[in-house]
């Protein structure tokens, strides 16, 4: 028997009015696994990602994280459970410095609310300075420690992505979910990102990657789920997925798939 999965998506189904956006999608992610989620435009990747991150609830089906069912839990419950995400469109806090953005990843560890904070006034200063050390270490990891005090608008898109990843890592997640991390990056930035994800994988981080860049995802992932028109059409290693007739058909066209076989 294999170890129980860290994330289990079971029969996910999402209907928008008359449109069935996601139809009976199931997959699992094992601890330490890097799973890719790909598909042509409109395949339902983003909707699936949104349901896993709690942004919108599924019409039916279930999502399990570790031993708990989180299907209809709101988005803010994910981070304390050990799930962290990044955003395709960079969503950093523009009024905060780079360092403060990363510190926000540690927010659930701080006392919640004014009275709770005042009650722990003594230990708060220590927690703040330890959190700052940790945030700076994370910025060192993504190579942006010298930007700690800078405003967000001083960053390039590539740097902003890295800050987003550092912010997500700050909560020490057991599952890191990245929404098109390579979108809009140049070659050098994409390579840099790939190396960083490889280091995280070596450290045992479980990851879910939604991506458009096929090259990038083939290199980064252990296994890949391919979706098309809201249905899962393949699930396997990059090599298996590349040979899959349905996958070739979805990406290039039915006739090309027939010609190859």
């Amino acid at each position: 028997m294999s170890v129980p999965p860290i994330l289990k998506v079971d029969g996910l189904y999402k209907r928008f009015g008359g449109l069935i956006a996601i139809n009976n999608v199931s997959f699992e992610i094992a601890p330490g696994e890097v799973k890719g989620l790909i598909g042509p435009n409109g395949a339902g990747k983003s909707t699936t990602f949104d349901m896993i991150t709690g942004v919108r609830p599924p019409t039916s089906g279930d999502i399990w994280f570790k031993a708990g069912r989180i299907t209809n839990q709101p988005a803010h419950t994910r981070s304390p459970l050990g799930m962290a995400r990044t955003f395709q469109i960079v969503r950093l806090f523009r009024g905060l410095s780079v360092l403060d953005n990363v510190l926000m990843g540690l927010q659930p560890k701080f006392p919640d609310g004014l009275f709770a904070s005042l009650a722990r006034l003594g230990s708060l200063r220590k927690q703040e300075s330890e959190s700052r050390d940790k945030a700076i270490q994370l910025l060192e990891f993504v190579g942006l420690a010298d930007r700690a005090g800078h405003p967000i608008e001083a960053l390039t898109l590539g740097q902003a992505r890295l800050v987003d990843i550092a912010r997500a890592l700050a909560s020490e997640p057991q599952l890191l979910m990245l929404d098109e991390p390579a979108a809009g990056l140049n070659d050098a930035e994409t390579r840099n990102l790939g190396n960083m994800l490889a280091i995280l994988k070596d450290r045992g981080m479980t990851m879910l990657l939604v991506e458009h860049d096929l090259d990038f995802i083939m290199k980064a992932c252990d296994t890949i789920v391919v979706m098309d028109h809201g249905v899962k059409i393949a699930d396997g290693s990059p090599a298996e997925v590349c040979r899959n007739r349905d996958v070739i058909a979805a990406y290039i066209g039915r006739r090309a798939a027939d010609a190859e076989h």
Partner: peptide, 8 residues
């Protein structure tokens, strides 16, 4: 949205 994703 981002704040919510971070557990706020």
């Amino acid at each position: 949205t981002a704040a919510q994703a971070l557990g706020v």
